[in-house]
């Protein structure tokens, strides 16, 4: 992806996370915990499981729709990060050709089943991760981490990272644009130019860090980044957690999907 697409992409994601929907208003801690449980449940299925994974798509679909997140945007982002899982997974059908099932006269090899399983798990885990940040502002996630016991120091600098991400991406974009304007053909993208660009960006970053530190001092900073607790776990958060856990447990341990298929 080019710099601009990445930049607009992350900006769009960020803006989605500040929407006001039911999902967005849930306490970040509830969403973080639910996401982790969801991920664990999904990857705990054995290698050849595909059928039992189907019901789990309900979770991302509900977050997508209730959270009013554009489906296509999320799918596009999933495809962008898919190469590694696909690349590793595609060896399964090549290497594992034993016939595992005959579905309506078409024989399916074990390798294809395990590959399909990887793809389904990929779709589920990646969409859950993307939807967490699309429905929870990054500062919200950070505060959740802090209150779930992550070190204050780590969380503070993570918040700084987020705050200056956009500022520095813009700065980098300006530097890159300047390179593009001044370079003709390939000369502008060689190692030397590249290193200089990063070097300049680094120096500017250091100067900025210094100015930020001064601004902090001028407002009484003396080592701690204070913050007011804002979110309180409400009934709806507990309900959300309870329903999620029940849903995960039921579909993890009971062969409901296959049952539906038998009845049908």
């Amino acid at each position: 992806m080019t710099f601009d697409t990445l930049y607009f992409d992350i900006g769009r994601m960020d803006r989605l996370s500040y929407r006001e929907t039911f999902v967005h208003r849930l306490d970040p801690r509830a969403k973080v915990i639910a996401t982790i449980l969801f991920l664990f449940t999904v990857i705990s299925f054995p290698k050849y499981e595909i059928v039992a994974l189907a019901p789990f798509f309900l979770y991302p679909v509900l977050l997508l729709t209730v959270g009013e997140i554009p489906v296509r945007f999320i799918i596009k982002k999933m495809i962008v990060v898919s190469p590694f899982a696909v690349f590793i997974g595609i060896f399964n059908p090549i290497l594992d050709t034993r016939t595992a099932a005959v579905i309506f006269g078409v024989s399916l090899s074990a390798g294809w089943i395990s590959f399909l399983s990887i793809l389904l798990k990929f779709a589920l885990t990646i969409s859950a991760a993307l939807l967490l940040i699309a429905t929870t502002s990054f500062p919200g996630v950070c505060h959740a981490l802090r209150r779930l016991g992550f070190p204050a120091l780590f969380v503070s600098q993570l918040l700084f990272l987020y705050r200056y991400l956009f500022v520095l991406m813009e700065e980098a974009m300006r530097i890159v644009r300047a390179r593009e304007m001044r370079s003709f053909g390939s000369r502008g993208t060689g190692m030397k130019v590249f290193v200089r660009l990063i070097g300049i960006l680094f120096l500017r970053t250091m100067d900025r860090a210094e100015r930020i530190y001064y601004a902090m001092l001028s407002r009484g900073f003396h080592g701690d980044i204070p913050s007011l607790k804002r979110s309180r776990i409400a009934f709806r958060d507990l309900a959300f957690m309870a329903i999620t856990i029940a849903f995960l447990a039921v579909f993890r341990f009971l062969p409901i999907t296959e049952g539906i298929g038998r009845v049908a």
Partner: peptide, 16 residues
Amino acid sequence: PGIEVGTSVSGIVGAV
């Protein structure tokens, strides 16, 4: 076919 790998016709139908 494929009981061990957890895939069967009814399973696929159910999933769909």
